[in-house]
Design a protein around this nucleic acid. Structure first.
Lengths: 199, 199
DNA sequence: CGACTTCTTGACTTGGCGTTCAAGAAGTCA
DNA sequence: TGACTTCTTGAACGCCAAGTCAAGAAGTCG
């Protein structure tokens, strides 16, 4: 058994990554299968055979996006002091941390984009998105608990509340940055928020 | 001259308002002309004759949305003390201020949704959205300047920075609330942010 | 009334989309 | 080698969207 037939001619993971970038920059609706065929150099039938229909393909890309993001989030927060790390997380989605914006990497957050485009109509998308937000809050809450215990972050508010606030800030930054933002004002806003957490 | 022909049988402003609600709840792409025809009880030809194509119709709805929002924003902030008003502005998009969510009124912010769906591809949408964000920041900045002068809000940060932070928070709340949010956590997050502004 | 203008109606055109499929190619295994 | 399985290719399908238009209806004005 496990009779293997003709081997796939393209790399599945790499293709998913490239599709992710396309979905990320154009959105779900505005990315047609033809766009994917052109950009990925994989024919329609092969895409359908490998990834299922467009919606499954997209949701798989969102899952991958979050998986990568979550890993980076955890790694970034695994430091002391915490506040500079939080600052980095906030500056990242709007690419405020880079002097020359990398045109190859899209702006914003794919989970946020998905929220705007597919939630709440699509229940599966809603689940993925809601889970991502929960995970973000959990991870940041844990980091804030440590930082409160270490006396770095104020304990005037509960870590959960602080983490939620940071979630809203990141998502707001990701979204607004699409319309282009004043770099200086945005950085000052982030500093204001982070300073508010200082003990 | 100004020969008037057959008068329009529907109310233009009211129809735009109803279209706005539909666009608001479903988004631009997911709202078809047929949906509008059904919901507004106005035939296709009449819609095209009155509002131009779908995109113009939508952008007009966004303009109206912002016009109404801006008026409310100014009215809400025209009080002292300011912090409770800011709190109201933050709780509003996610309908956290109402015990029973009004199913007739959609969640989130139409400007934010437009940002996610049409920006930056559509330059006209980008202009409208960017202008709305600027206006929000200007209005809130002016209010914060007064509140800083009155000693209600801390002057450790510039009003512009505080206003930008509030913009990101509102937009983040609007977006994340689509996926459903923990009421208590969200309110606590808002309080955390608002407390951070206190003098 | 009769000329003129504008609005209404809904069938129609056009185009692009997601999806399917049949025929052939490229492997594996006995 | 030949049976079998899986992948590749691109034409074809069906659908539904946005947008158009011609004929008629409902007003105004001289």
């Amino acid at each position: 058994m496990a009779r293997t037939g003709r081997p796939r001619e393209f790399d599945k993971e790499q293709t998913l990554e490239r599709a992710l970038k396309l979905f990320w920059s154009r959105g779900y609706g505005a990315t047609s299968i033809q766009d994917l065929v052109d950009a990925l150099s994989v024919e329609r039938g092969s895409l359908y055979g490998t990834f299922g229909d467009k919606r499954r393909f997209y949701l798989e890309a969102v899952r991958l996006y979050w998986e990568v993001y979550e890993r980076r989030l955890i790694a970034t927060l695994d430091t002391s002091p915490l506040l500079p790390a939080l600052r980095e997380i906030l500056t990242h989605p709007a690419r405020l941390d880079e002097f020359i914006s990398d045109v190859g990497v899209p702006q914003g957050c794919l989970v946020g984009n998905t929220t705007a485009e597919l939630v709440p109509q699509d229940t599966e998308a809603t689940e993925i998105v809601a889970r991502s937000y929960s995970r973000f809050t959990e991870i940041v809450t844990a980091a804030l608990e440590r930082a409160q215990a270490a006396g770095e972050v104020t304990d005037k508010a509960r870590p959960e509340a602080q983490a939620s606030m940071l979630l809203y800030l990141v998502q707001g930054l990701s979204l607004v940055s699409r319309a282009g933002l004043d770099r200086t004002a945005a950085l000052a806003a982030i500093d204001t928020a982070v300073d508010g957490l200082r003990a």
